[in-house]
Design a protein around this nucleic acid. Structure first.
Lengths: 108, 108
DNA sequence: ACTACCGTTGGATGTTCATCCAACAATCGC
DNA sequence: GCGATTGTTGGATGAACATCCAACGGTAGT
């Protein structure tokens, strides 16, 4: 039961799976935040979406199983991190396009 | 009842909506094909997904309502076209990343 | 006008999914 | 060890979705 429990190699990922994992407001925001600021904890400190705790667990699981993130367990705190390198190698420009689009949506 | 019936300005689009519109095998394939080869008809000539006619109508509608495509009616044939310019302006690098990723998945 | 063709519409259906709640498990501080 | 904290699991629920089928609406050709 390590952290890479159900996390596949990004090589095996299909674009559809990645897209579907990010086709959600909360999960997209998580990915964008991760892409912008490195690893984060899972506690409600940073992620204030107004949803239940278990809902966040659900979303984190989707992201991890889609191969987008990697979770590191340290004591009772979990640290989530974007697999940026693997993702960039598998889907060049995707994460970057998502981040750029985020900046634009903050403006408009 | 023109072609741009429920097609919003890509400016108003959110990344999530675009992502959700493409988070489907058939629709992603449509977008990728459109991005690679310009406008296509809607008839079963090019799109051989093995699904029912009305299912294709459904997918085309999702794409159009998400602002990804534009449909031009010519007689009894409908021509679908990717709004590449607007999409590139709104989400720089997104469509390109999708196309590049498609080439890779053809290899792997 | 009748028929063939292209695509849409409405209804029906089974599945997936996002969400909440309650209960549980593991860890840290005292 | 006890209580507090952090996150997960299982069940339940309502909404969204992909799909099919049958019927319909224009358009083209004869």
């Amino acid at each position: 039961m390590a952290s890479d429990d159900a996390a596949p190699d990004p090589i095996d990922l299909t674009l559809v799976d990645v897209l579907r994992a990010m086709a959600d407001p909360i999960r997209l925001r998580i990915v964008q935040t991760l892409a912008a600021g490195g690893p984060h904890g899972k506690c409600g400190e940073h992620w204030n979406f107004g949803v239940h705790k278990s809902t966040m667990t659900h979303h984190f699981r989707i992201l991890r199983e889609a191969g987008l993130t990697r979770t590191t367990v340290t004591g009772r705190t979990h640290t989530i991190e974007l697999r940026r390198a693997e993702l960039d190698a598998r889907f060049p420009g995707l994460i970057d396009a998502l981040t750029v689009a985020d900046q634009r949506s903050s403006v408009g």
